[in-house]
Computed example of a mutant assay.
Amino acid sequence: MSLKSYSRARAVHVMLVYTGGCNGCDIEIVNCILSPKYDAEQYKVFLTWNPREADVLVVTGPVTKHTEQPLREIYKAIPEPKAVVAAGACALMGGVYKNIHGDIPSEEIAGPVENIIPVDAKVPGCSVRPEDVLSGVVAALPKLLDAK
C-alpha cells in the first residue's frame, strides 16, 4: 500500500472552491476546520488546495460563467471515490444573485452547483453555520466509505 493510499484511507481531505459571491460561507467553512472551537483536524478532516488529494469538494457561491469550466476541471481531477457538498444559499439556488423573478440570469450566472456537477449533500444558509458544514461533510461520507 502506498503512502498516498494509506493516508487517504485514514483521513478526509476537504477542498474548498469559491465560485462567486460574498465569501461569507468560505470564512465559516475554514473556521470549522481550522479554528480551535470546532477543530475538525482532530477527527482527521483536513483542508487541502490540491484536487488530487481531495475526497470531498465543498463548493460555495453561485457558479458564474467565469468559474463554470474551472469547477468542472477541478471535479474531474479529484480521484474516485469523491463527494460534493454545495454550501450556502448561493450554491443551492443563486441566493441574492438571482433576479427578481427567481431565475438565475444566464448572462452572468451559470447556475447552482447541481446544474454543473453532481451534488451529494446540500448545506443551506446565508452564510452557513460551521456545525451545518460539518454535518454536510458527514452526510457525504457514506459515498466515500462504501466505495473504499
Rank of each mutant, 00 (worst) to 15 (best):
Pro62Gln: 15
Ile109Gly: 08
Val84Phe: 11
Val133Gly: 02
Thr60Pro: 06
His101Ser: 09
His13Leu: 07
Ala110Pro: 12
Glu53Tyr: 06
Asn23Ala: 09
Tyr97Gln: 08
Gln42Glu: 09
Val59His: 06
Ala121Asp: 04
Cys22Ala: 07
Ala54Ser: 11
Gly136Asp: 13
Val119Phe: 11
Ser106Cys: 08
Pro36Ala: 07
Leu134Ile: 13
Val123Gly: 05
Tyr75Val: 14
Val17Ile: 10
Thr19Gly: 11
Leu92Asn: 03
Met15Pro: 04
Gly125Thr: 13
Val96Tyr: 02
Val119Asp: 11
Cys32Pro: 02
Asp103Glu: 15
Ala87Pro: 10
Ile104Met: 14
Leu16Val: 07
Ile117Met: 07
Thr48Glu: 04
Ile29Cys: 00
Glu73Ala: 15
Ala139Asp: 15
Gly95Thr: 06
Thr67Ile: 09
Trp49Cys: 14
Leu47Val: 01
Gly95Asp: 08
Ser35Met: 01
Val96Cys: 11
Met15Ala: 14
Val58Arg: 09
Leu57Asn: 08
Glu53Met: 14
Leu47Ile: 04
Ala140Met: 08
Leu92Trp: 03
Val123Tyr: 02
Val59Trp: 08
Val14Leu: 06
Asp55Leu: 13
Pro70Ser: 14
Gly136Ile: 11
Glu107Asn: 13
Asn23Trp: 03
Ala110Trp: 01
Leu92Thr: 02
Gln42Lys: 12
Ser135Gln: 13
Gly125Ala: 12
Arg129Glu: 05
Val45Cys: 02
Lys82Ser: 06
Ala110Ser: 14
Val84Gln: 06
Leu141Val: 04
Gly111His: 09
Pro70Trp: 09
Gly20Ile: 15
Pro70Gly: 12
Val123Asn: 08
Arg52Ala: 15
Pro142Trp: 07
Lys143Pro: 10
Ala54Cys: 10
Pro70Asn: 06
Ile109Tyr: 12
Pro70Ile: 10
Leu71Tyr: 00
Gln69Asp: 13
Pro130Val: 06
Val58Cys: 10
Asp103Val: 09
Glu114His: 10
Trp49Tyr: 15
Asn115Ala: 15
Lys76Val: 11
Pro130Arg: 03
Ala77Gly: 08
Tyr97Cys: 03
Gly125Leu: 05
Glu41Lys: 11
Ala40Lys: 04
Asp120Pro: 08
Ile33Asn: 00
